[in-house]
């Protein structure tokens, strides 16, 4: 390329008038079987990408992305679960020395140390050796961290009640008629406190599609069942009838 005096430009711009040929470098003299990135290697990369994309699209079609029911901040019985890649942290916080008085260890110290060590790895592991076996400390610590993350994730998966998790988040497609006299009684008699504003359950179970008859429901309201104490219902018999018929009429769609 021409440099210095006598350079020609396009118009009054600073673009050189001399055109550079648009051809790739010659890689044949490079050592080994070096290849050009464009187009040789990129083609292979994109072919892998295409296969990956097909698999990915199949995944999205086969497994619909989950959506639970609308957030209800009053539902105190919901057991939260983070996305899977935070599960190990979630599990870590269940252990004695990472909870209670030691919460800080679980939430800050351990993740902080791990992340900090990762960030500063080039300065912690300064030797010239690159092979994993030649730097046993770095390799060992990483394997240890890896094993503990896998173990903690595994533990949290095994210990989680997936069936209940699915139940508690289900979208309930029942239109609750909140103007119905039965619902008014439901509100007034504080059933709402445990069974939720949509009768979908809270600390008490869901009342939708119980399969019980109105008489059975009336009986439970008066005498309790399971964890539900007796004498929860303090209204008139007329109200009890309205309530039990209202709840018995809630069918799962």
């Amino acid at each position: 390329m021409h440099r210095g005096k006598g350079m020609k430009f396009v118009g009054d711009s600073r673009i050189p008038a001399e055109r550079k040929p648009n051809i790739p470098k010659d890689y044949s003299e490079y050592p080994g079987k070096t290849e050009a990135f464009w187009p040789n290697f990129l083609l292979k990369e994109w072919m892998v990408g295409s296969v990956f994309l097909i698999g990915y699209l199949i995944l999205t079609v086969v497994h619909e992305s989950p959506l639970e029911r609308k957030a209800d901040p009053t539902d105190a019985s919901y057991i939260p679960l983070p996305d899977w890649y935070f599960l190990f942290l979630y599990q870590l916080l269940k252990y004695k020395y990472a909870a209670g008085d030691y919460t800080l260890i679980g939430t800050m110290v351990m993740p902080g140390l791990a992340f900090g060590a990762l960030l500063l790895a080039p300065w912690l592991d300064r030797g010239p050796e690159r092979r994993p076996v030649k730097r046993p400390v770095a390799t060992g610590l990483m394997l240890l961290a890896l094993a503990s993350v896998i173990y903690l994730t595994w533990e949290s998966v095994v210990n989680h009640d997936w069936e209940k998790a699915e139940q508690q988040g289900k979208i309930v497609e029942v239109e609750i008629d909140k103007e119905a006299p039965g619902y008014k009684v439901y509100q007034k008699q504080t059933c709402i406190g445990c069974h939720g504003g949509n009768l979908s359950g809270g600390s008490g179970p869901s009342l939708i599609g119980t399969g019980l008859s109105a008489e059975e429901i009336a009986n439970i309201a008066k005498n309790g069942t399971g964890a539900m104490p007796a004498d929860q219902f303090k209204g008139t018999p007329e109200e009890l009838k309205q309530l039990s018929e209202f709840i018995a009429g809630l069918e799962k769609k």
Binding site: K20, P24, E35, A36, F37, P39
Partner: peptide, 18 residues
Amino acid sequence: RLDITPMWRDIADHEVPE
């Protein structure tokens, strides 16, 4: 007008070692 060949070659031309 814009002399894009050098920029383009800069993106496209790099070696992928064996």
